[in-house]
Design a protein around this nucleic acid. Structure first.
Lengths: 257, 257
DNA sequence: CGTGTCGTTGAGCGCTTTCAACCCTGGTGG
DNA sequence: CCACCAGGGTTGAAAGCGCTCAACGACACG
């Protein structure tokens, strides 16, 4: 919509800021991140060497598809949108990375060009761990390698589940699958569940246009499958949703039942 | 199409055969597999403990979506089709695993339910390495863990590229992307390229019906983008294909140019 | 020569996309 | 206080595209 011109806002700070932050503070921040859990104190210290803190304004781009990414990134605050740009100008969202999560391991490990683009979907703070330092640490610390292997494996499995959702034959089934998927993550039993990002971005993750996603949600609410409140929703009968995901239904106008 | 009933054919052998093969032979076979390259002799020997050889007839199922897979599998001969079954009876192919390749690492490593189903797309021979043995070996051999980390990372990157292909807005662009993608793998310069599997399976990997895949190929041949011969094809001008992948085109009947 | 598998071709329909206008909210400044 | 604007979201109408169903052709195999 808008020229890529980053909008320096709030404090008037410059965007894409490689703020020279004391290393000690970076260490401290890293230690609080979920993805660094189980890393020894010395481990964190070694990785923090050559690490930088990055500040991104909303909509600002960190790197582009095809870039040789030189660092492993950790989201300290805000949210990053990882996506593949499509020829028609739209995009397919791969992942929405929130606080405490990292991204970019595969590219760094294999030293391959990144297949996706990274843009801040909110004002964000990141920590960038130098690729060389990270790879060295992986080589020298079996425990870290093992842990990372598990992490990447998990991410691959998650990606396959995303593919499963996108492969559903109808938009209704895709959304139903996605909502069910959300519950398994959120762990909140019968509580309301909040959409973890803008509807636009979620739609792009499901391989749907924003409009269809909106229509499907409206339809599901109208049919009583979900209760819709802004960008949160509640579900009374999950098995009903389950059957929707499996079977689908016509979704015509004036539907009864 | 057909009841899941496995059809014992050809030699009249029993299907899903856990043939009791001498361990020495298994070791020997493993050593010749591409995915075991760089594994030490002793490494192979340790992994071969508790390994089995499995014989599968075409169409026979190895495991189903949701199974707790208890082994890492290596394809010795034949081809395995990994796919997600869809509610309408069709399937989305995740990967077509050929000779010398392995599959199932993520599930084994994380001890999670497998998100896909594995069926032999040809008569096949596999080696199954016990999950416990494999995990122990991973823990005790940093070099193996490191290598596996690289392998899984590469597989994740490949999966993302697959997503990119499936996310293309039109069927023409999907196929164009896929054909280009094939060249980068095949490495064969200006030679003919053979489709690595049945058209039906490739279509399912691209998220297309068999019919549209056929139509698209026919269209591209008719328009002179490719030369089509059975399930091999040649390309004169790759940049032309590239532009097709990026821009797309109407694909109406009676097209000129 | 029948059978099974793979692939092509044709016709029709339904869904999703696209383009468009509109609504709603929050922030800003006169 | 209200006008104004930007961003996110909803809704409507039209059209294109891929899917489904179906029949047919090619080929291998017993």
């Amino acid at each position: 919509m808008e020229p890529a011109e980053p909008i320096s806002q709030s404090t008037g700070n410059i965007t894409m800021n490689f703020m020279p932050v004391p290393i000690v503070q970076i260490q401290e921040t890293m230690a609080r991140m979920a993805c660094c859990e189980g890393w020894g104190r010395d481990q964190v210290a070694r990785l923090a060497v050559g690490a930088r803190q990055i500040t991104l304004a909303r909509k600002e781009r960190l790197f582009t598809k095809g870039d040789q990414v030189q660092a492993l990134h950790i989201v300290v605050s805000g949210q990053m949108r990882l996506f593949i740009p499509l020829p028609n100008g739209s995009e397919r969202v791969i992942s929405l990375v929130g606080r405490g999560e990292s991204f970019g391991e595969p590219c760094v490990i294999r030293a391959e060009a990144c297949p996706y683009e990274a843009v801040a979907s909110k004002n964000s703070h990141l920590i960038a761990i130098d690729a060389l330092v990270y790879r060295r640490e992986l080589r020298q610390t079996p425990a870290l390698a093992e842990q990372t292997l598990s992490l990447v494996s998990g991410r691959l499995l998650r990606t396959l589940r995303d593919i499963e959702i996108c492969a559903q034959p109808s938009s209704l089934q895709r959304v139903a699958h996605y909502l069910i998927h959300l519950r398994t993550l959120g762990a909140a039993k019968d509580q309301e569940i909040r959409l973890p990002a803008l509807k636009r971005d979620i739609a792009a993750k499901l391989g749907l246009s924003q409009e269809t996603f909106s229509r499907v949600l409206a339809f599901m609410a109208q049919q009583g499958f979900i209760r819709l409140k802004g960008n949160a929703f509640g579900v009374d009968d999950w098995t009903l949703l389950q059957s929707l995901a499996s079977a689908g239904c016509p979704m015509e106008a004036g539907g009864n039942n």
